[in-house]
Design a protein around this nucleic acid. Structure first.
Lengths: 148, 148
DNA sequence: TTAGCTGCAAAAGGTTTGCAAATTA
DNA sequence: TAATTTGCAAACCTTTTGCAGCTAA
């Protein structure tokens, strides 16, 4: 993990009048160590190994605080819990409905599609908050392929 | 509502060894009357007006049975409960994260984008199960526009 | 000192499940 | 009759909330 990142997270927390506590330091560290697509539950387990007293609700509230400051973002991969990732990673996500595998696709992959939608439907697609579902090649070839 | 549709729903239920009960008839009727994008809760309320004893769990199980037979499909519009629609309406959905408005877009709107994704990422997008989030023109112009 | 956090426990939503009793075919 | 459904209640899972006590600034 990059210590500078942790520093930045904590600094930004303080800047908005927030406080840096043991829990927040531990959660931010766990998050940065994990490197993408972590659930609150993942973070809670990691953090609780060293600090069993840190509550899940604190993890929720800490991630919320980081999100308000624009440091992290959550997204929904499908059913199940939301995952968090650093907000400086601007990619979209494809999720296989068969195996759950996540494929990251660069932002600009959607550019043309998004402007088509904007033009025809007067609607600005902002597809980072929910993953695009579908089927990966492996699952398409598998014994139990997707419906239709 | 089209009586032929109800008939078809009930027939298909019977064909697979399923049974047609008072509850299922009432639920199917309520669904067809509603005409798209109904939650289980919507259906339960409608149905319970005449049959207070019909349980929500029965509505879940009935819609599941209809879905297994390919008559209906559920999709997730965002947070909140899933909605059901007839599976012969093959469109995609845009949902405004500001006001919740749902815009239906024809299947083929995604064709080019989907083949681009297929080619570049070996992944078949199947975006009917989750709506595409974004912002409608009204909310974009509103006092509190979307982040970023 | 005092606004801002924390832990805990409880609650809120949406959905699923177990089971005995009722019903359909 | 035998297999399927039902109603009810309880459980589940993720997330949110209330609140008294604690703590960073």
């Amino acid at each position: 993990m990059d210590d500078a990142d942790l520093q930045r997270f904590l600094d930004e927390l303080r800047e908005g009048g927030g406080r840096v506590t043991t829990a927040r330091r531990a959660i931010a560290t766990a998050f940065l160590d994990a490197g993408g697509h972590v659930t609150v539950d993942d973070l809670a387990s990691t953090v609780q190994a060293a600090h069993p007293e840190i509550a899940v609700s604190t993890v929720y509230r800490t991630m919320e605080a980081l999100e308000e400051r624009g440091l992290v973002e959550h997204l929904h991969l499908g059913h199940g819990p939301a995952v968090y990732h650093r907000s400086d990673e601007l990619h979209h996500h494809l999720v296989c409905e068969g195996c759950g595998r996540v494929v990251e696709v660069p932002e600009e992959t959607l550019t043309r599609f998004a402007s088509e939608i904007a033009e025809r439907f007067d609607f600005r697609i902002e597809a980072r908050h929910f993953a695009l579902p579908g089927w990966c090649a492996t699952c398409l070839a598998a014994p139990e392929p997707p419906p239709a």
